[in-house]
Write a protein that binds this DNA or RNA. Structure first.
Ligand code: MN
Ligand code: MN
Ligand code: MN
Ligand code: MN
Lengths: 223, 223
DNA sequence: GATACTATTTAGAATAATCTAAAAAAAATA
DNA sequence: TATTTTTTTTAGATTATTCTAAATAGTATC
């Protein structure tokens, strides 16, 4: 696969550097990347050298890597494809939102600009994927909604779930069981000093308690 | 990609051995395979050795290769995916039938049984792809319609186009221009001794002449 | 600042796939 | 059958990716 110049593996690395680097702005460490990519630090070193030569990342030995403009462009194209496919799987093929990630991880590497523009059109130009993440347009622009973890919302405040920070099957199934999904409105009733768990009140007026771990991965917009 | 045990490259070879071997029943020569795969005979030799070890082809040095039952199963799964995706691209995403092959060549390697069964359902369990080729079901069974090239149809006989033997953009665009597509009914009016071209009469009663090359690649069912 | 610990990089090797050139086998021809 | 031509296989390299183990750089601790 030399069509667009980047292999599946390279695309996955570029995406990972983009994600980690964009989170805090700091250069991504070799170990962080190795962890994200489920590989060894040695492999990451090799790959960063290559990606640096191809000018998609900035990289200095022992100082970590950050995404370059060219790399950002590639990353956003892959992310756009990933999220559009997720929408397709959930909206059209009736996948559950916890079943789409692995398949999208494969589909995101299909090379065909026509396919993606047609898919986008077919889906009605969606702005968000099933996990609440924004879908970049052809130019890489996407909605920047300010969202915060439920864990930092003050007691008494109302908010709406707009995304999840963890798309693992385990977490999404947990949310399904709790009756929480994208769009769910809720109010923070209390925070338990003991273990950090949070009591929330849902739209149906049912009160439930979510773990601190869950509260960190539930992203909400406060009213 | 070790999930199902076979790489993209291996899947492509298996498909090629299946196709060439199933056409005439004879073992496929190294050169024929090299030609089909657009690679060298040396590479084919290497790969046949490997595929033979993996028991997906039968192979003896200097005697060519044929598909094994296990190989046939894999080939038909890949072909099923290829053709289902082609239907999706044409029926849902409004691709022209000459634009789908390359993309399907990529999509056929996506590993997800759920994706394919859902896609099949979504498309309404199609039996044929946009080029008239039958789509195998989950068990590898598919409709076996007897079809013959237009070139062998007798003068005066009526028939219906049911498939094309060549899915190249060049040929399909030629057919578009001629107003011929899958399902077109026609009658053979005359064969020109001079160059082998054939005069046919279409449904709209328009008469056209097709080249011998075209007549060989147009597969029809006689009434 | 010397020592200890951690993070990162290099060295060297493995697997997958491919290629060129040379050797060997099979087929065709004389 | 002997010779020539074609096909196929092997030998030896090359690129991409990954890994283990060893070396080195950077950070933390006393
Ligand atoms: Mn991926
Ligand atoms: Mn997502
Ligand atoms: Mn393919
Ligand atoms: Mn087809």
């Amino acid at each position: 696969m030399i069509e667009n110049g980047f292999s599946f593996v390279e695309e996955n690395y570029i995406k990972a550097v983009y994600h980690l680097n964009t989170q805090d702005g700091k250069p991504v460490s070799t170990n962080a990347l190795a962890d994200e990519m489920q590989t060894t630090a040695a492999s990451v070193s090799d790959m960063l050298k290559k990606l640096s030569q191809k000018k998609v990342v900035f990289y200095q030995k022992y100082k970590g890597a950050s995404i370059s403009p060219k790399g950002k462009e590639i990353a956003l194209k892959v992310i756009r494809k990933h999220r559009l496919w997720e929408v397709f799987l959930v909206d059209q093929l009736k996948f559950n939102w916890d079943e789409v990630h692995e398949v999208a991880e494969q589909l995101e590497h299909i090379k065909s600009p026509l396919l993606i523009s047609r898919l986008d059109e077919f889906l009605g130009y969606p702005k968000y994927d099933p996990h609440g993440d924004p879908i970049p347009d052809e130019d890489g622009n996407f909605a920047q909604v300010k969202k915060e973890p439920l864990s930092v919302v003050e007691i008494g405040s109302s908010c709406q779930v707009i995304a999840v920070d963890d798309s693992s099957t385990a977490f999404l199934k947990y949310l399904d069981k709790m009756g929480i999904s994208i769009g769910t409105k809720l109010r923070v009733e209390d925070k338990n000093e003991f273990d950090g768990s949070i009591d929330i009140n849902l739209e149906n007026d049912k009160s439930i308690t979510v773990s601190p771990r869950a509260a960190e991965n539930l992203l909400v917009a406060t009213d």
